[in-house]
């Protein structure tokens, strides 16, 4: 018969195990439910499961520029072309380019028709 302390310890360990497993089962659900143009769905074990074909063109007052040059210098360009990733990214770009950045970002996920991730040609710095 386990002692009270041992039983309490086992209860806490059981709760930790249950919580861990529930997290591991539930968190990846987002990667299945949410549209892939909206989220990269981190923590969902989606490696090598989807195809992304994206085109992104950015321009500021001086004309077109390579928006990803700074990122590519640091490491392999990360998969940024999802709506949730583009919001903070565009906010940063607007700061870097003094406002008035326009873009066309289109992605076809899993060979579906391409979708616009931002209003085509619109001023990103005026988006909410």
């Amino acid at each position: 018969m386990p002692s009270g302390d041992a039983r309490r310890a086992s209860t806490w360990i059981s709760l930790a195990i249950g919580g861990f497993l529930a997290t591991q089962v539930l968190v990846p659900l987002r990667g299945v439910i949410a549209p892939r143009v909206d989220t990269r769905a981190d923590f969902s074990w989606s490696m090598y499961s989807h195809s992304y074909r994206c085109q992104a063109k950015y321009a500021d007052r001086n004309g077109p520029f390579d928006a990803f040059a700074e990122l590519k210098r640091r490491a392999d360009a990360p998969l940024l072309l999802h709506r949730e990733a583009l919001v903070p990214w565009h906010h940063w770009l607007c700061g870097q380019h003094g406002g008035a950045v326009t873009a066309t970002v289109r992605c076809a996920v899993d060979f579906a028709p391409a979708a616009d991730l931002v209003p085509p040609g619109g001023d990103l710095c005026r988006l909410p």
Binding site: P28, G31, V32, S44, W45, Y48, S49, S51, D110
Partner: peptide
């Protein structure tokens, strides 16, 4: 076990089943 299961579920869509995603990868 969970990793395998989710990795499989993530692949159950027409583009992967057609072999096109694997071909691209």
């Amino acid at each position: 076990t969970i990793v395998y299961l989710w990795a499989a579920i993530q692949k159950v869509h027409p583009a992967y089943l057609s072999g096109r995603v694997l071909g691209e990868i």
